[in-house]
C-alpha cells in the first residue's frame, strides 16, 4: 500500500489546483468587500428615548438599593417620580420589544437579508461551481501518513478504497481553504474579517444574537415599579450620631486622635 506512488498530471495542477485557489481567494475578497460595504453604517439604531429608559431603570434600581443613604423626603420625591401615579414607570415605554420592532421596522429585516446575501449566498454558489467544475480530482498529498478515519475528510468526492489516505481531493481542498483562509485574511484586513464559523453559529441560534438588543421594556417597567412600591425607606443616618460618638470615644481611648 505504501509502495505505489501516484503520478499526478501537471495539467491537474494548471487547470484545477491554481484556478481553484484563485477562485476561492477572489470569492473571499469579494465577500469581504461586500461585507464592508453593507455594514458600513454602524448600528446606531438606539434612540435617545430608549437609552433614557434603560438608564432610568438602572437609576431606579439604585434608588431601591441605596435609598437608605438619603433623607426620607428626598427618597419619597424620587419614588414618586418613578413609581407614582404619573411617574415614569406608569407610562408606556417608548422602547419597543424586539418582536414589535421586527414587525414595524423593515430595516431589521433588510439587515438580515443583507447578512445572508453577503454570507451564505456566495458560499452556496461557489460550492455549486466547485462541485460542477472541479469534482473528482486528486490534487495533492499531505507529507505525512494518516489513519483511514481521515478518508471522508480528505477525499471528498472520490470513493476509492485503495487510495492512500494522505492524498486529498479538490473538494476537500476547497473546504479546507474556505475555513482556513480566515487567518490569512485577518493579517490583511485588521478589523472585521468575515468569520464563517461565527456566521454559522448566529444562523443556528438566532435568539442568542437577538438577546442583548431586544429588551421587553414594558415588563421591566412594571417589575421596577412593583419593586419600588414593595421597599420601605429606612434611613441609614438614624443612628449616625450614636456611631459617631462611639467611633470618637474609641479613637480617643486608643490615642489615635
Amino acid at each position: 500500500m505504501s509502495v505505489h506512488q501516484l503520478v499526478l498530471d501537471s495539467a491537474v495542477r494548471d487547470w484545477v489546483f491554481i484556478p481553484l485557489t484563485l477562485a476561492i481567494v477572489l470569492m473571499k475578497l469579494l465577500t469581504q468587500y461586500m461585507h464592508q460595504l453593507f455594514s458600513a453604517p454602524p448600528p446606531s439604531n438606539k434612540e435617545l428615548k430608549e437609552v433614557r429608559e434603560m438608564q432610568a431603570v438602572t437609576r431606579a434600581g439604585r434608588l431601591r438599593a441605596m435609598g437608605r443613604f438619603i433623607p426620607e423626603t428626598s427618597y419619597k420625591m424620587r419614588k414618586d417620580y418613578f413609581a407614582g401615579e404619573k411617574g415614569l414607570f406608569s407610562q408606556k415605554p417608548m422602547t419597543r420589544s424586539p418582536q414589535e420592532a421586527m414587525a414595524t421596522d423593515p430595516t431589521v429585516m433588510v439587515d438580515m437579508m443583507k447578512k445572508n446575501l453577503t454570507g451564505m449566498v456566495p458560499q452556496l454558489a461557489m460550492g455549486m461551481v466547485v462541485n460542477f467544475f472541479f469534482q473528482g480530482f486528486v490534487i495533492g498529498k499531505v507529507p505525512f501518513p494518516l489513519s483511514p478515519r481521515f478518508k471522508p475528510m480528505l477525499q471528498r468526492g472520490i470513493d476509492l478504497a485503495s487510495l492512500d489516505v494522505s492524498y486529498f481531493t479538490s473538494l476537500s481542498y476547497y473546504i479546507l481553504l474556505l475555513f482556513g483562509l480566515r487567518g490569512a485574511f485577518s493579517l490583511v484586513f485588521r478589523e472585521d474579517v468575515v468569520d464563517e464559523t461565527e456566521m454559522m453559529k448566529r444562523q443556528m441560534n438566532p435568539m442568542g444574537a437577538a438577546g442583548p438588543m431586544g429588551v421587553d421594556m414594558e415588563s421591566m417597567f412594571k417589575q421596577e415599579k412593583a419593586a419600588l412600591n414593595a421597599v420601605d425607606h429606612e434611613w441609614e443616618m438614624e443612628s449616625a450620631e450614636e456611631r459617631a460618638v462611639d467611633v470618637m470615644r474609641r479613637a480617643i481611648k486608643a490615642k489615635k486622635l
Partner: peptide, 14 residues
C-alpha cells in the same frame, strides 16, 4: 446635617 456630619465622622474615624 448633623446626622450626615456624624456619618462622615464615622467613615473617616474622626
Amino acid at each position: 446635617a448633623r446626622s450626615y456630619y456624624s456619618k462622615a465622622i464615622e467613615l473617616t474615624m474622626g
